[in-house]
Design a protein around this nucleic acid. Structure first.
Lengths: 163, 163
DNA sequence: AGGCAGGGTTCAGAATAACAACCCACTTGC
DNA sequence: GCAAGTGGGTTGTTATTCTGAACCCTGCCT
């Protein structure tokens, strides 16, 4: 389920990541999860997404281990969805996307959501740092390497047989 | 064009960014562009995407100023597509996605593409740093703020009247 | 001329997303 | 006790989008 496109023959972490978060609405669902949304109706209200699509997205995010189902009521049966550690690690992706959009799309206009870095008080505009040496990464300092015969996306992701 | 989903009523840099790069295949097109791909046939060979979809994606990326058309031959007329500065700034998004996929999807398996940080020689696993104070950003150090009545995505993006 | 390459466009048909209605298990109001 | 309301979905239909394959055009090669 999800987009029609099939990335599974690629052998690339980016393609694999897109297989998980690349469906329409998915990343906005995750964005809202970071802002504390955890229930079906809340997402539905905020996004205006079709209910069946939302249900499908939540299901596949759970299947991929990004969200976790947590029953918060037995009678009547009610679930909420919370980010797992894996899901929380997507914050970097969201923040870099926010940074790019703020810089290149909104410019000075300023969108409705801003992230502030508490320790220094400034509005966060993230740069990438190398976790090994701590330096800010410049594009020119990056070398890309290709290796053949690596596992494809299909090898790595669980089948979405959510039938 | 693109995904059916309509994010334009949102007021959020993330949604705006998704409006530009959220269509199926788009981010893989950009990934390949970073790896030096600049011509129609190259993308088509590497991605296996339908030709009309590829043509549509290139068109909207140009419309959004992520790619730039450059004729490299007059007779016969031939175009190539290269990343603009705006497009090159998407490297951070690609790198964080690669980092997440490598860590959580491929794990030790190692996908076919790796990024090396030349200055320290290690495989790059990016962390976010605050461009203001230079510190590595921890999730707990981030405060989210909402402001009402900001321009929506529709206000900020050019209409895709690529008719 | 015939074949081929690059860069597309134009179809039909299949797979999704959108929209709207409906269902079920309670809980609350009267 | 029963109607209405709420949360969390499912089940249809319709409308778009993607896919796949064929086709077009300009020029180069032989």
């Amino acid at each position: 389920m999800g987009r029609t496109a099939d990335y599974s023959r690629q052998s690339c972490s980016i393609a694999a990541t897109l297989e998980v978060i690349g469906d329409p609405w998915t990343l906005l669902v995750i964005r809202d999860a970071f802002q504390g949304v955890s229930r079906f109706e809340q997402w539905q209200d905020r996004l205006g997404v079709a209910r069946n699509v939302l249900a499908a997205r939540l299901k596949t995010l759970v299947a991929h281990g990004v969200l976790e189902v947590r029953p918060y009521s037995e009678r009547p049966p009610r679930n909420e969805y919370v980010l797992t550690a894996k899901g929380k690690d997507l914050s970097d992706v969201l923040l870099t996307m926010h940074g790019w959009g703020s810089k290149h799309l909104y410019g000075e206009a300023d969108s409705g959501v801003t992230f502030t870095h508490k320790t220094c008080g400034s509005e966060l505009s993230p740069r990438l740092a190398c976790s090994c040496c701590g330096e800010i990464v410049k594009r020119s300092d990056i070398a890309v390497a290709f290796e053949a015969d690596r596992p494809t996306v299909a090898d790595v992701l669980p089948k979405d047989e959510a039938a």
